[in-house]
Computed example of a mutant assay.
Amino acid sequence: MRAIKSVALWLALGLTPAYAAPAATPTERTLREACGAYSQAGMRECLVAKVDESRKALKAAEAEASGRLAGWDEDLKYVNFAKVRLAASTKAFATYRKDQCSLAAALGGGAIGNALEIWRLACEAELNHWRADQLQRATVDLPLK
């Protein structure tokens, strides 16, 4: 209820939340294309760097979401419940990402060398960025104490 009142107040005052939509989340395809100027080994290294970047973005988004929940102006029982659900969601996402990216690699079919790993890495980077964006959108407008 507090969140609804907070948003209504912002809109009544003609204000908008500080959150601005992030740049489009990179897709597997755009990530592979961005690294496509390299040889297959170089492409793999480029995608490893993209995965590392995406992992950092995801960790930061998880920390920010956790911090926003800790400072959320809501009854403690709801704050604690949301924290438990965030932890469960984070764990479920890790399982989903592993399984989905295994599928992405399998869709490379009979490819050899680094090709299957390239598909898996692009998938992991995309999903990490997607999850980071999702967490930010879910928590950015929580009213803080």
Rank of each mutant, 00 (worst) to 15 (best):
R2F: 13
I4V: 15
K5H: 13
K5L: 11
K5P: 06
A8V: 10
L11S: 09
L11R: 08
L11F: 03
L13W: 07
L13K: 12
L13F: 07
G14N: 01
T16N: 09
T16P: 05
P17E: 07
A18M: 04
Y19L: 09
Y19I: 02
Y19G: 05
A21L: 09
P22T: 13
P22L: 08
P22S: 11
A24V: 14
T25N: 10
P26C: 06
T27E: 05
T27P: 07
T27L: 12
T27H: 10
L31Y: 00
R32F: 00
E33I: 00
Y38M: 00
S39Q: 00
Q40C: 01
Q40N: 08
A41F: 01
M43L: 08
R44F: 02
C46E: 01
L47M: 05
L47H: 00
L47I: 00
L47A: 00
L47V: 00
A49Q: 08
K50L: 02
V51M: 08
D52N: 12
D52V: 10
S54Y: 02
S54D: 03
R55D: 15
K56Y: 09
A57T: 07
K59L: 15
K59D: 15
A60W: 04
E62H: 14
A63E: 12
A63W: 08
A63Q: 11
A65I: 06
S66V: 01
S66L: 09
G67P: 02
G67V: 03
A70C: 05
A70W: 04
D73Y: 05
D75K: 13
D75G: 09
K77G: 04
V79Q: 01
N80E: 10
F81C: 06
F81G: 03
A82W: 03
A82Q: 04
V84R: 09
R85K: 13
R85E: 15
L86C: 05
L86P: 02
A88Y: 11
T90L: 08
K91M: 13
A92F: 12
F93D: 10
A94D: 14
A94P: 04
R97E: 14
D99G: 12
Q100F: 14
S102I: 04
A105F: 02
A105Q: 08
L107G: 02
G108Q: 03
G109H: 05
G109E: 07
G109M: 02
G110D: 14
A111L: 05
A111F: 06
I112A: 11
G113F: 02
G113M: 04
G113K: 01
R120A: 11
L121F: 00
L121D: 01
C123W: 01
E124P: 03
E124R: 09
A125K: 06
A125F: 04
A125D: 03
L127W: 07
N128F: 09
W130V: 11
R131T: 06
R131P: 02
R131S: 03
A132H: 06
A132Y: 05
D133K: 13
D133N: 12
L135A: 04
Q136G: 09
Q136H: 13
R137H: 03
D141S: 10
D141P: 02
D141V: 15
D141K: 12
L142Y: 08
L142F: 09
L142R: 07
P143H: 06
L144E: 10
K145V: 13
